[in-house]
Design a binder for these strands. Structure first.
Lengths: 110, 110
DNA sequence: ACGATAGTTCGATCTCAATCGAACAATTGC
DNA sequence: GCAATTGTTCGATTGAGATCGAACTATCGT
């Protein structure tokens, strides 16, 4: 069973984390993962091509933000929350405290 | 006296901030500005071409991180600290709490 | 008014990065 | 063993972004 490669948390640089989070798709993934223990890649596809999504997960992994473990044909992803909180105290909390801007859905006509 | 254009803080998005901070040069500028009231562009050139530095200051301004005011021939720059703390509580603090990795200078032979 | 200074803009060059389709790989159920 | 499922990798395409030199702009001192 092939394991994914994750950088040790002490090798994770702030610039890499910012670069990973500067993309709306990846920031969205991190937000969703913050609200769950684990989520599969398929659960986070958001209508994109598989290869695009795979690319983003690769960036998130390489930047040290997430951990990926295989489970059958599925890859389960989780935020490396505790490690990141230790490495950059308060950063993730501050990031996740910011709610995303409203998406393009028109306002409800209740 | 020409004023620089700064986005209102409520128009500043998290992704823009992350994009601005994902470049080592710009992150370095923000770190230095955090330790001063104001600094000129020239004080932060770090050996780069003027046009390169100007480009980076433009990105920092457009992302809402800094404020620039002209003073004679000089442009004085400051971190929009209070506004950013209000907009993204704790974020800047967490960013600045992380010390930069050691630079490429060889260790002192004391 | 001119020269010096600080900084901006333009355009070129090159690298980086996001996108996707096609092909491939690992796992599981039958 | 094969098909289905999930996900990765490759390569192409396109756009974004960092770099710099040259030219330009605003301000100030003389």
């Amino acid at each position: 069973m092939r394991q994914m490669r994750h950088p040790p948390i002490e090798d994770v640089e702030l610039e890499q984390v910012f670069h990973a989070l500067s993309d709306p798709m990846r920031l969205g993934i991190v937000r969703k993962l913050a609200g769950s223990a684990e989520l599969s890649c398929a659960a986070l596809e958001d209508g994109r091509a598989k290869s695009s999504v795979s690319h983003h997960f690769r960036v998130l992994r390489d930047s040290g933000l997430i951990r990926t473990r295989p489970e059958g044909t599925t890859h389960m992803n989780s935020l490396r929350r505790a490690e990141l909180d230790a490495r950059f105290p308060g950063l993730l909390g501050a990031v996740l405290a910011v709610s995303p801007p409203p998406c393009d859905t028109p306002p409800r006509d209740d």
